[in-house]
Simulated assay, not measured.
Amino acid sequence: MTATDPSQFSFNNLLADWLADRMTTPQIQPILEQRWLSYPWRTDAQPIANSPKPIGAVAQTIQAQLDQFRSLAPKLHSFCQDSLGWQTFPLDLMWDLWLPLANRLVSWQRAVGHPLIQGLIGGQGTGKTTLAQILSYILEQQGLQVCRLSIDDLYKTYADRQQLQQTDPRFRWRGPPGTHDVSLGLTVLEQLRQGNASVPIAIPRFDKSLHHGAGDRIDPEWITGADIVLFEGWFVGVRPIDPIAFETAPPPICSEADRAFAREVNTRLQAYLPLWEKLDRLILLYPVDYRFSQQWRQQAEQNMIASGKSGMSDAEIREFVEYFWKSLHPELFIAPMRHQSNQVDLVIEINADHDLDRIYCPAA
């Protein structure tokens, strides 16, 4: 994911020049202030205000972020190279998204007065796991303890999923509601929220490579607590909808069998609501066209095959991705969340090139 607009490339260079002391802070200050006022970071702890902060307050905020930026940029650059394998480093994205979002999480954590359970929802290929890794690194550099937990870590055991598949063959792949241990998730999130540093917490972990790709649980990771929990997944925070919507559902929900499966998954989603109630906030990573997920999955598989690893064919990818769309169709379940301030706190829209399209808070 990289931030773009007509002047984005020069903005990236501007930040590089400032870091290299080829430009001074007074030279770039007006540009940064103008840019800041166009983003939802204009307030410290609340959603977008009707009017921007006074210029003097913006200048102070900009200076604080510049100090942060100079301190963290070299370290974060190395992290992205070493841990994520990035060849280039988007300074513009660090400025526009990563730093202000990390600071927003800190302010949210202070406001709730207990460990923050931050939900992060995004479909396949949206970059939610990468974003969680980067935010974790930034927050840990500020001295905070961060726990990353994926909905995938809550999958039922291989044996339990095999039993589910025998009972209902429609659940042939892991992923949809019904394939997770919700009670395990509730226990873990409640323990994290309590924040008792004297009691170690077992964070479940899942290895997707086991059982020829079917995956299974592995030994948990033990931690002593966290200031911020980043809980991410492709349907974290998604709520059941009126079943009548499936009568006119978009493709690939086409047959009566498809509609019956969608209704079953919708019913099973009800069991996840207590888990979503543990969330303090929810951020939505939203592709401007949900069908990008298929394109991104094909690119990922092609890269794996090019590197000598095994991967799915285009036909297999299409069937796999459409299985998820049949279970929780993005147009029915995800798209409406962009406009529901009682469900989502921040929306980050992404275009076909994984570029940052826009950031906004749903209208109240």
Rank of each mutant, 00 (worst) to 15 (best):
T4Y: 14
E322K: 09
D168Q: 13
F11I: 02
W108P: 00
N196F: 02
Q270A: 14
R110E: 12
P330Y: 11
F235H: 04
A111N: 05
T129Q: 13
T2N: 14
Q34V: 09
I28Y: 10
D67F: 07
P330R: 05
E349M: 07
F231W: 00
D168K: 03
Q124W: 01
Q163D: 03
A159N: 00
H354Q: 13
E221D: 11
L93C: 02
R22M: 06
L15P: 01
L356N: 05
L279Q: 02
D289E: 11
Q81P: 00
R110N: 13
S150H: 01
A352Y: 08
R338Y: 02
Y137T: 04
D152Y: 05
L15N: 03
P287M: 13
P30F: 14
Q194G: 00
F69P: 01
V112Y: 09
G113C: 08
L230A: 05
P204Q: 07
M304S: 07
I350D: 00
C147D: 00
Q142P: 04
G225H: 05
N12R: 12
A45K: 10
P54K: 11
I62R: 12
C147I: 00
V188K: 05
K156W: 11
E264M: 12
V199N: 03
R193E: 05
A20Q: 13
P362T: 10
T179Y: 04
T43R: 15
A300Q: 15
N342E: 13
R297V: 00
M304L: 15
D207Q: 06
M94A: 02
W36N: 06
